[in-house]
Structures are given as structure tokens and as C-alpha cells.
Design a binder for these strands. Sequence first.
DNA 1: AAAAAACTGTCAAACAATTGACACACTATT
DNA 2: AATAGTGTGTCAATTGTTTGACAGTTTTTT
Lengths: 247, 247
Amino acid sequence: MQHTLQSLKSNTNLDEYLKTKIKTLLLGNSWFKELPDYLVCAILNIATLKRFQDGDIIHYYGDEAKDIYAILTGSVKVSSISAEGNECVFRYLAPASWFGEIGVLDRSRRTHDAIAISQTTLLVISEKELQTLLIQYPIFYKFLASLLCRVVRTAFTMLNDSTLLSVSARLAKRLVSLAEGYGVINQEGILISLHFTQDDLATLTHSARQTINKRLVEWEKLGWLKARYGKITITNIQALKQLYIDE
Amino acid sequence: MQHTLQSLKSNTNLDEYLKTKIKTLLLGNSWFKELPDYLVCAILNIATLKRFQDGDIIHYYGDEAKDIYAILTGSVKVSSISAEGNECVFRYLAPASWFGEIGVLDRSRRTHDAIAISQTTLLVISEKELQTLLIQYPIFYKFLASLLCRVVRTAFTMLNDSTLLSVSARLAKRLVSLAEGYGVINQEGILISLHFTQDDLATLTHSARQTINKRLVEWEKLGWLKARYGKITITNIQALKQLYIDE
DNA sequence: AAAAAACTGTCAAACAATTGACACACTATT
DNA sequence: AATAGTGTGTCAATTGTTTGACAGTTTTTT
């Protein structure tokens, strides 16, 4: 499979200024924050950067896993598509998130497609460099295991949600989670700084566009949010939370 | 929460004969098989046994994680129950399977209830002993990471199934998987050696008993299986597979 | 500024699955 | 061997959601 990507500084080591900037950014991630400083340095020494445009494929489901990634700027959609073309979104990733570790750790294939959904810069650790680092510091496996635990817990939560929650509850939960990941507070409320049409939300909750429309119109009348042509502003996040906490 | 359990040889080291027997059994697991011999020995040296009766709770969702387990005989249901009492089954585990590693690795809480669903003997590694072993052999983290990868991949598959497959397809897939885990071949076909009523299958596929009944009657007429009062015999596994491979 | 494309709001029809009900069949208990 | 308890087969009514359609609105492209 072919990847359309535009490399910014691929395969060149980062200068000290950039390293410091990136380190500060990544320390916003609660997993990364737990790493001892010598591992943080070791990681930054072997890392390179890659830039992607909106819609660029980072990797496809089934590709051989060659790198692990951290998002520096932008956002990434992690999803899979069935034989009939139905999409199932696992998660949207915001800056400071890591992904791609599964295929690298079990030296196997990608579990999902990963697509940049805005202009995105990734920190890249190649499998080869990672393996060298792991030989030098086997304790890093411990941290990777804890990263995997987070992914498993996310997957379990979603599995429960998909079988135990209604479309309304799932939609509410996803919106709240997007608000938490990409929310920008303004005078009206919390604006989700990514473009989401009703179709996108339908895919995200695995339902039909018309069903989503019904809920959004309903919730807009109640004054809980405003959703129009891709721009979503949440004005009563507490009301939305109530929809899935009760259920 | 209280655990009803009857210990067989809790907290006593295993004798050499038992170790050899257990080792042979566990080598049937493709993850365990990859472990170097010194780790296998180290594990068996710190392991103890616990026995559970049908219906005994091994741990509840939210319990503090104190041990990891391998199933020696019997079977275990891993599931969670929502506030309204709806059950969501993650998986049924057969002999030689390991479980309980997540809560121990991230030193946190159990992600699911685990219930013995027949007379079951577990190999138990306490968190304390495991941590000691991990300090001595940090490379064991590597193997635990690969165990976690398997769990994640299972969770991803189920997540896709639950959103992309119909009830029929999900039922067929679960039946095939049970046949693979617990199937005993006899003159009629593959008998699933666990008790599964229509109610159980409904919970397993997250649907209603009546819906399951419709499918089972339908498939029995086609000569694909026979399900009566908890005993399920699959007579045409290929036909069942076709139901979810196509979809 | 005009045209094309994409998105929204709202129908009605179709559908898959749930729910509640009940008679009947089988199993476990005594 | 009788009885209670559990599981099965099959209704009909209802629900939640999907599908297809289409007019109107907004955004993007030229």
C-alpha cells in the first residue's frame, strides 16, 4: 500500500532546542511523564519527525509495523473498515498521545488504519532504534507494558459502551471525549477544534446520519450544544454527561 | 467483596512431579511456549494452586489486582455487568490460558469479573512474587507485553464484531470459537463441553433469548447444529463460519 | 459572482430485534 | 415416581434504528 506523505525533517536528528520543546509538549501525557529522564533523553536522541497533511494515510490496517509514533501537533483517526466499507473508529488522538506500539511490540501487523485528520506532525521512533534502546534498557518494556494496559482499558470501555449504551448515550460520550481532547473554550462554550459533520458522528457512534440529526436537533433545542456544518460547540457538558452516566 | 473458594494447596510449593505435569499442560499455550526455560522454571517455583467450584467468583470488577492466573483445568468466564444488570462477556477461557495480568501490570483494579464456570484449578502467581521475578528478569516484561498485545488484539476484534456484525454472525462466530476452545469430537459432530442455554448465548451475543432461538431452530433445520438444554453439538462448522466471513 | 459540492432537516417505509406472554418439554430434586 | 424448577418454541405488539428520498442551506471551487 502506498503512503502519501510529505517529510519535513525525516531521518535527521533533532537539535537541542527542538528536543526541549518536544519534551515539554510530551510531558503533558500522563504515561510519558512517568518515564525516567534517561529514557526520555534516549527516546529524543533516536527520534525523527514526519509531517502529514489532512487526509494523509499514516499506515493501513495490515501493514507491517515499522515505527511507533507520538503526536506533536494535529490529530489522528484510528479506525478500521470492514469488507463492505463500514468504518469502525477506535479513537481520535490528540497531541502528546502515543500510538503504533502494538504492531511493533509483537512484531506483527497494524491493527487499524491511522489517518491524519488535520495538518499533523509526528515524532517517529523506528522499530530498529526501539529494539536497540530496549536491549540497552530492558526496563523500558515495563513502561511499554503500562502503555498497552491503557490501550486495553480503553478498548474494554468501548466494548462495554458499544453493547450496553444506546446511540444517544454513545453520541454524548463521544462528544464529551472530543471536547476533552480538542475543546477550546470561548464565550459560547467549548468548541471542538476539529471538523465533524453529522456523517462523521454517525460513523463514530456506528449509527445513521438521520438518527444523529434527530439527537442534535433535540439537544440544540435544550440548549446543550450547537452543531452546524462541521463546527460543534458544547454549551452544557454536564447535561451530556448525565446521558451516559445514568444509563 | 467476599470470595467463596476452596483452596486445595494454597501457598505451598509444588512438588517436582506436579511441576512437570503443569509445564506440559501450559506449553499448549502459544504465548507460554515462547518463554525461555529459565523463566518457565522460575514461574513454576513461585506458583501455587487454587481450586474453584462452578459459579465461584475468582475476582470482581474493581477489586485490587493481587495475582495473575493460568487455567489448569476447567473454565473461566470474563465479563462485566452494567449498573442495570446487563452482562457483557469478554471471553471464555480454556485450560492453558492466562489472565489477570492487566491489573497487576498497571498496579490497578480488575477490568472484569472472573467466574469459574465449571470445577476449575488455577495456577496462581502473586503480585509480590511476580514483582520479585521481574526485578530479577526484567526481560519477562517483554513477554508480558506480548501477552498484553494478544489481549488488545482480541478486544479489537470483538469491538469490530460488535459494531459491524449482525446477531446471526456474532452468534455463529461465538459458537465456532467455543467449539474451538471446548469442542469434543464425537460421532455426531463437535460437542461443546460446557453448558450453554439459549439465555447464556443471548448474553454472549448481547441479544434476546427469542432471537437466539429463531436462529438455532433455523440452523438446526439446515442440519448445521443441534442445541438442546445446554448441550450444543455443531455438525457443520463450515456453514457457520461462512455466516461471518461473508459479512 | 455563479456554479458545484457538501451538509442539514425532515419525511415515510422498512426492518431487525426486543419485550411480554404462555404452553409445552425436559431435568433435577425429593 | 411425583413435583418443582428450568429451558424451549412460538406468538403478537412494540421499539429503536436504518434506509431512501428530497428540498433547502451553507460552504467551497472556479
